[in-house]
Simulated assay, not measured.
Amino acid sequence: MSKKPIIVFEGIEGSGKSHHISAVSKYLDKKRISYIKIREPGGNLNSEKIRRLILNNKSDFNKNTDLLLYLAARSENINTIKNSYKKKILLIDRFTDSTIAYQHFGMGVDINLIKTLNKFLLKNIKVDFTFLNVVNKRNLYSRLKKRKSLNRYDKFDMSFYRKVQKGFIKLSNINKKKYQLIDSNLDIKENEHLILSIIDRLIK
């Protein structure tokens, strides 16, 4: 594995992935280790514009439009990813697994279409390690209630989130060595300690 890996944080809404990627960022800052942090959808200026369109509560796209918008946002980030690949640590908040989990397992889009489009965009770029955050129903809704505002993807019913989370777990089972399951129902500090210990191993 490259010592400048691509490390991805995945999980459904309320699973704590954004908290943990922030904790890792602060840890690397403290150690003065350079990295790039990207969120999907989002990242650069154009991708953030697409993010606002996707997540807007007034948007009502069909599942194929949703897929293409997510991939358009990824396309806008691709030069940043390519230019930093194996040169800097890349921390990504949601990436290719999210596209498959949400658009295929959640919405029923053809998985081969998703894989073909991802391959077209990424070429030989591969994720080195993924932290998959899982959450139960009670904590998911409890955390969403604490948010100041909810976007379109925060308002699906539990059956949708359940399908997506099962999809994530199915993907993680394909290559368990490259995934760490994080039970976000447990103590957050305990999970932070686990994640940072793995980060140390990945970058040293």
Rank of each mutant, 00 (worst) to 15 (best):
F105Q: 04
K17I: 02
F129L: 03
K49T: 00
L45S: 10
F120C: 11
K176H: 02
K170G: 02
D60H: 14
K63P: 00
Q165R: 08
N44R: 12
S18F: 05
N185H: 06
I54F: 04
L28F: 02
N185T: 05
D29H: 10
N56M: 09
D187Y: 07
N175Y: 10
L91P: 00
I198V: 11
A73F: 02
K189F: 12
N118C: 06
S197K: 15
S172G: 14
L194N: 07
F160D: 08
L202Y: 10
I89D: 05
I33P: 02
M107N: 12
R201P: 00
D183W: 02
N151H: 09
S149A: 12
H193P: 00
I203E: 12
L140P: 01
Y70D: 10
F168M: 13
R32K: 14
K178G: 13
D97W: 05
K119T: 01
L53D: 04
F95P: 00
L113C: 09
N118K: 06
A73K: 03
Y27A: 15
S2D: 13
A101F: 09
L132S: 04
I92M: 11
N175Q: 10
A72L: 11
R162C: 05
N173H: 10
F129N: 01
K3V: 06
N62M: 12
T116I: 05
I169M: 15
Y27R: 15
K189M: 07
N139L: 14
N139P: 00
S47F: 10
N57Q: 09
L140W: 01
N191W: 11
S18G: 07
E10V: 01
F156A: 10
L144D: 06
Q165T: 02
L132W: 01
Y85T: 05
N133D: 06
K119C: 03
D110E: 09
K178W: 01
I199T: 02
R147N: 10
L171F: 05
R143K: 12
N173R: 14
K26Y: 08
K63Q: 12
S184D: 04
L69Q: 03
K166E: 12
D200K: 14
F9D: 05
K163E: 08
S184R: 03
L55P: 00
S25L: 04
K146H: 06
S22M: 06
N79A: 12
L150Q: 08
M107A: 13
K30T: 00
P5M: 15
I199W: 03
I100Y: 04
D128A: 13
T130S: 14
G43C: 04
M1N: 09
R138C: 05
Y27N: 15
F105P: 03
S142K: 14
K189D: 08
I203D: 12
L68A: 07
D183H: 08
L186T: 01
P5S: 15
G43K: 00
N139D: 09
F129T: 00
L186H: 05
K58T: 06
I36P: 01
S22W: 00
N64S: 11
I195K: 07
G14N: 13
D187H: 10
E192R: 04
K126I: 04
Y27M: 15
D183Q: 06
K26R: 13
N56V: 01
M158G: 01
L196R: 07
K204Y: 08
P41Y: 15
D187L: 11
I12N: 09
